[in-house]
Amino acid sequence: MSILRNSTLLRHLALTLLAGVVLYLLTLQLEPFRNFQLATVAAYLCATAGLTVLVGLNGQLSLGHGALMAVGAYTVALSQNRLSDAGVTGNQVLPLSLALGVLVTMAAGAVIGLAAARLRGPYLAGVTLAVAIAVPAATVTFDEVFNSEQGLPVYVEPPPLSLGLYFPNERWQAWIALAGALLTMLLLANLVRSRIGRNLRAVRDDEVAARLAGIHLARTQVLAFVVSAACAGLGGGLMALLAQSVSPGAFSLTLSLFLLMAVVIGGLGSLSGAVWGALLLVALPDLTHDTTDWVTLSPEVAQRLEGNLPLAVFGLTLIVVMIAAPGGVQGLLRRLGALVRRRVPTR
């Protein structure tokens, strides 16, 4: 146990492995629909984890992460389709496409990051907002490649036959998405506890002090943006695989705002908070839907609520969380934990 306590990497590796085993067993138990939801949570988690590092730990606001997800998603879509057209199929090309998606999004993130490093506050929000709007518009301008608003289908290979003829596809999707999310969490957890992570926080807390301590401001900020973009790219790529299609409508400004809301509600700057955020992104629409099913409403009211209600609930949750628990869900849990520990005498 002392090795684990002393080595961050080993401790995180052990935790990741354990989480992997637990999640693997969970996917065996879950119904296909729940597995699909789990896969969606995992895909969102990649993006929210990256965003919480950028916003929470480095203090840079991004309203354009939905667009970065789109970059990853379209890259994966184009790569999968081109490869299958060229006759290269099989599940082994999947990691290649995803890696390509991450790389292209990193390049996009570097460009935005370079601009972002020169901007502060509302100006930074403005630039990233422009990105959120420009990327979907680009799919319309270059419609030969991106097929305009209709989007592209994504070629996805069915689960390998070695798993069984009736192996549920959703479980396979959950495995892929969870693998991506676990990898993201492992790398980010190590990053934030490393020298780079300390630099990120130093820059957030006081730029002048950080510079006096010998930290290169712009470099740190661009790096944060690139790391965050890579995560968003992976999340977007996984989304493309799950939805088996990409279209600009799926990566609208609303998605960017939702991601930001999710990390704030979950607890800004904490990776566990990103997990809560990703869970909420999937669970809230579903929960509100189920509640409207219980209550008998006139068809007209039900139809109007359908689709609009989750938006309202999300907004309300944000307001309530901001007033009641500014630290988000994770902050609340931490406070509760401290309370319990104070009551129960330590052994």
């Binding site: 119904e31 629909f33 699909f36 209709q150 939805a243 990409v246 279209s247 579903d286 689709g307």
Partner: peptide, 30 residues
């Protein structure tokens, strides 16, 4: 909401959770 990503979730919910017999008149090309 005419959003292909939502269609994925909604149709899975109908088929896998609600166990519908068939999908009828699903709207929209994308």
């Amino acid at each position: 909401g005419y959003n292909p990503a939502n269609t994925q979730t909604v149709v899975r919910k109908l088929v896998l959770e609600d166990k519908v017999f068939a999908i009828l008149n699903g709207l929209g090309t994308p």
